[in-house]
């Protein structure tokens, strides 16, 4: 613990280092990207992906995985572009019901000891179906206030950057710094000992699922704020992207090892990967390939750091 660069520090910095390297590469290839407008273009879609990644991370905290988050975000987007605009009270009520549904899902999975992968997979059909009922064909219109927030011309840097940093810090405080956050993460690390100390595992699981539901809502609303209209299939890709983002950000699949700041950085890195290719004049066909490649490289680096640590 005496040396300055401990393996853990290196591991924690890995997401930030990957993001920095990618940004520098982009600025080198296209110096004009280093402007307000350029950054705005580059990071346009980072915020909704970051929220979806945080939702996924909440599930990972308690050793679960959500294969339905993409469809859920799409459903929220559809509500946002219809009910929330036309009948705001009903829209808000529907969104609250969504969070309640996520909490109930957490309770069901915990009480029946079900595999989260299959349950959330089934739910992905339900969310998609609901989205199609709300909005059978692409369309709708985002409420003006969401649009106004998402296109807010903030000074110095684009809104996305301020929002990402703010969200990362808030979630960091909730999960990493608060007293109950320690218990929530403890459930992922050693559920039995947390239970032995008198905590309710059910309550912890329901809390994390409800949080995931809340972040899913933020993701959907942020998305329609950017796209102005919605579509049931608009966010299906988010399911896999959010898993990749959370892992890229230093999260681990089991054991309650998560990092909210890392998750936001991971999501941003994945967003940038696509832009990076277009600056290299490589066909956008390779965009998701680059995302997979970055994921593999970062995981490989993590293994190397762990090996160095073992020595």
């Amino acid at each position: 613990m005496s040396s300055l660069m401990t393996p853990r520090l290196l591991r924690n910095l890995l997401p930030a280092i990957s993001l920095t390297v990618l940004l520098l590469a982009i600025f080198y290839l296209q110096p004009r990207a280093m402007s307000y407008l350029g950054l705005n273009l580059l990071l346009n879609l980072a915020l909704p992906i970051a929220f979806a990644t945080l939702a996924q991370m909440c599930m990972m905290t308690v050793n679960d995985l959500d294969l339905g988050i993409g469809a859920y975000v799409g459903f929220v987007a559809c509500i946002g572009a219809t009910f929330l605009r036309d009948t705001p009270a009903l829209g808000v009520l529907m969104l609250l019901a969504c969070v309640a549904a996520y909490a109930a899902l957490g309770a069901l999975i915990h009480l029946r000891n079900l595999p989260s992968i299959v349950v959330t997979l089934g739910m992905s059909f339900v969310w998609l179906g609901l989205a199609l009922l709300v909005l059978p064909t692409p369309g709708g219109k985002a409420p003006d206030w969401i649009r106004a927030i998402m296109t807010w011309k903030t000074p110095m840097l684009p809104f996305t950057i301020y929002a990402s940093v703010g969200v990362a810090l808030i979630v960091h405080i909730i999960l990493m710094r608060s007293a109950y956050g320690a218990v929530l993460r403890g459930v992922g690390g050693n559920a039995r000992s947390v239970e032995r100390a008198g905590w309710s595992l059910l309550r912890a699981k329901v809390t994390m699922y409800a949080l995931a539901g809340v972040f899913g809502i933020f993701s959907g609303l942020a998305l329609i704020g950017l796209t102005t209209s919605a579509d049931a299939n608009i966010a299906l890709r988010y399911t896999l992207l959010s898993i990749a983002g959370a892992i890229l950000g230093g999260g681990e699949f089991v054991g309650g090892r998560i990092s909210p700041i890392g998750a936001v950085i991971g999501a941003t890195t994945l967003t940038l990967a696509g832009s990076f290719l277009s600056f290299l004049r490589i066909s956008p066909d390779w965009q998701i390939g680059a995302q997979g490649g970055i994921l593999i490289i970062v995981l490989a680096l993590r293994i190397l750091i762990n090996r160095a640590e073992a020595k």
């Binding site: 109950y180 218990v183 690390g189």
Partner: peptide, 26 residues
């Protein structure tokens, strides 16, 4: 061992003691 490996020593202490909470719990 019945500690949570993913938490710090401080956080593990807090799990044992529900009464440690609120500002300055750390």
């Amino acid at each position: 061992l019945s500690l949570c490996p993913n938490l710090t020593v401080i956080e593990n202490t807090r799990i044992m003691h529900p009464e440690i909470r609120g500002a300055g719990w750390r």
